[in-house]
């Protein structure tokens, strides 16, 4: 076959693939958006569900998801960032580093449902937190930890060695060097990692199913050891198990739209931030 013709054929195929990918995602979002806008309103966001979720709003689910993100922020961010600092700046023993890399890189790919099993066994049963926000939140925290650590690690390691040397040569201590120089420059990258991790936790459903998400509550959770609703589970429950699947379709769509906007919004912020940060420091 003619070389030019061959090139044209292949390149058209690649363009077709890209078009198909864009198309599939646009279609998906289009359906969720148009389906959801029908029902979405201020009241929908701020009201309690009524009549077994078939009427009213989704406030408890929004609040539940918000609390879950809060727990993840409070637990996995400090531990994750501190671990990352340690790994980049302090760690030097051979086997610990290797064990750690193995754990972090491979556990990032472990299915979320497996983390659910962990939450059920440890937080719900062993530590006696029961089916509660706390059990689910801690489970999500552990799930996001690998993501958190590797993002923070990358950001910290990206700060050039010359900056550390400059600071140390002026008689700064190790921690002063980290605190005054390494962390400030790594911060935008760390923030990006934090937002991506938290948004991942917000959209996660499977671990919640094993750690006690509630199908319907007409009140907000009363403390961190109370049961709770969450947006992603609400979608699943309403779409597969509620009393009238077809009649509540608009509610399902609207809830999906709310979750989609929440997660995509957070990811958008994270990626824009990373872009600006990359433009700012060109070492």
């Amino acid at each position: 076959m003619d070389r030019k013709l061959k090139e044209m054929l292949f390149f058209s195929a690649f363009r077709g693939c890209a078009l198909l990918v864009v198309l599939s995602l646009v279609v998906l979002m289009w359906y969720i958006a148009t389906g959801g806008l029908e029902r979405l309103s201020w009241d929908f966001l701020t009201e309690m569900p009524r009549r077994a979720n078939t009427e009213g709003g989704i406030l408890p689910a929004i609040v539940g998801t918000f609390y879950l993100m809060l727990i993840v922020l409070a637990v996995s961010v400090p531990i994750g960032v501190m671990s990352a600092i340690y790994l980049v700046e302090y760690e030097q023993s051979s086997w610990m580093g290797r064990v750690f890399k193995l754990a972090v890189y491979n556990l990032a790919g472990v299915p979320s449902i497996v983390y659910g099993l962990l939450g059920l066994g440890i937080f719900v049963a062993f530590l006696g937190f029961g089916f509660s926000l706390m059990s689910a939140g801690l489970t999500l925290s552990i799930m996001t930890l690998p993501l958190m650590i590797s993002a923070a690690r990358e950001a910290i390691a990206a700060v050039p060695q010359s900056v550390r040397e400059a600071s140390l040569a002026l008689g700064a201590t190790k921690w002063q060097t980290i605190w005054h120089h390494v962390l400030p420059y790594a911060l935008p990258g760390i923030f990006t990692g934090i937002i991506l991790s938290v948004s991942r936790a917000a959209g996660e459903t499977a671990p919640l199913m094993l750690t006690g998400v509630a199908m319907s509550l007409q009140r907000l959770p009363d403390g961190f050891f109370d049961s709770f609703m969450a947006l992603p589970y609400h979608i699943f429950y309403m779409a597969t198990q509620s009393s009238n699947l077809l009649a509540t379709r608009p509610i399902q769509y609207a809830t999906a739209l709310v979750l989609l906007l929440l997660v995509l919004g957070m990811n958008l912020v994270a990626i824009v931030m990373r872009k600006r940060y990359r433009d700012r420091y060109k070492w």
Partner: peptide, 19 residues
């Protein structure tokens, strides 16, 4: 060492001002 480096300054090969 921190004290040593305070008393003995160093300028590096590649200029490395803080950002």
């Amino acid at each position: 060492v921190v004290d040593v480096r305070r008393r003995i300054g160093m300028v590096f090969q590649k200029p490395n001002p803080f950002p």
